[in-house]
Nucleic acid binder design. Structure first.
Lengths: 219, 219
DNA sequence: ATATGTTTGAAACGAATATTTGAAAATTAT
DNA sequence: ATAATTTTCAAATATTCGTTTCAAACATAT
């Protein structure tokens, strides 16, 4: 068998704990005791904590990028005469997130922790490894997004893309926190799917907004 | 004197290191050796590392909220017959960030680290203390933002507000990372002021976008 | 059955952390 | 000047972390 029962138990516990607490905040002792497994088992099966994180990342990101690129390819085949709109692309992205999220319980939080890891942490070698590993996988998606924003300069697009990513990462990364914040009552019934859908028109409008060339010195 | 020379040196070094690396990632030894001060000095003057963080937070957030609320009051006095638009309000916020950023060198990164602390970390007591301490200070600003988005439901506004915060926090929190990413060349000349200004029309458009009631099952 | 390779387990290791201690030094008050 | 108080300092303490060790248990093949 490709992965022993112990390794599977470790993976499952690690996914849940990583999703809930983040990578750095989760200790080996937490993982192994949650998995009812000896402390040394992680190092034995995955080499190190970083090896475990890399394994979790691989398990979650590979389905993500394949599903997203499949969706893109399908769209391009169905309507080969038109480039996909920003709305179409974002909907593909959200659908992909939800789709993988259905098959794997902790997919969404894990994705966000990984994005946090890539963007937030500064001196980690895991960061560079993951960038090298997955950058090209998203290249097509970004390129199509750029095509539908052709009117703006590269610089403007670069920043707006990151404003957009900020909304996505921040929102999903703090989803539990936000709904638990109980600033309002109705948030209790909030669901990820609705929130993702709610983001699309906001992101589209932001990405396509007229650039304001007025300097700050006004008013 | 209200604060000894040692305490001041600690504060200055801590601000710089916190801004650069984050709170958890900065050690007492780094702080004290950067300040040319004994390791025990932090505990003596601030009680604990958390006490030091709280002191830094107080030093930076108090000018922020007073300046922002001053700007709001001034605007309401100047044009008492109209409610401020979303664009006006966001511009006030950005100006406030920049203004405090000019008087205090590390203001912007420190703000973002604090927002990270408030939103990201889950079980910290510092988080709750800061929420209690500063929630009311931003209440007026949020309320005015709500008034200019009166057409949408509370739930919609709640989420769009957090999409917006996500863009701001994420972008400024990763400003150095993003410009250092050198995905493009021109990013080298990027400046915070321009980026903040660049965000305004994007955020306004996102906040005012037509809500899409179409469910995901389309297409 | 026996030998060989694989996995588990309890304990210890080494490095890094924040904090505490107690005496020396410096400052301040009398 | 002297005493009292405050501040500094080097060292020790306690805790937590990922990792390593090595013998025992287990599985598998011969």
């Amino acid at each position: 068998m490709r992965q022993s029962a112990t390794a599977k138990k470790i993976m499952l516990s690690a996914e849940a704990l990583f999703a809930e607490q983040g990578f750095a905040e989760t200790t080996m002792r937490e993982i192994t005791s949650a998995a009812n497994v000896n402390l040394a088992a992680v190092n034995y099966h995955f080499g190190s904590k970083k090896g475990l994180i890399a394994a979790v990342a691989e398990k979650y990101l590979t389905p993500l990028v394949t599903h997203l690129n499949d969706a893109i390819d399908e769209r391009l085949l169905l309507k080969p005469d038109s480039t996909p709109t920003t709305e179409e692309l974002l909907e593909m992205l959200m659908r992909t997130l939800l789709q993988v999220g259905k098959s794997k319980q902790f997919a969404l939080p894990v994705f966000m922790r990984l994005l946090e890891l890539i963007y937030m942490k500064n001196q980690d070698e895991l960061r560079n490894a993951m960038i090298i590993r997955y950058r090209s996988a998203f290249a097509h998606f970004i390129e199509l997004l750029r095509q539908d924003s052709a009117v703006m300069k590269d610089e403007e697009f670069f920043w707006r893309l990151h404003f957009l990513m900020g909304s996505i990462i921040f929102t999903l990364s703090n989803f539990q926190t936000l709904v638990a914040l109980e600033m309002r009552e109705f948030e209790r019934a909030a669901e990820v799917e609705m929130t993702l859908h709610r983001m699309i028109p906001v992101l589209v409008a932001g990405l396509h907004a007229r650039a304001d060339s007025t300097p700050f010195s006004r008013l």
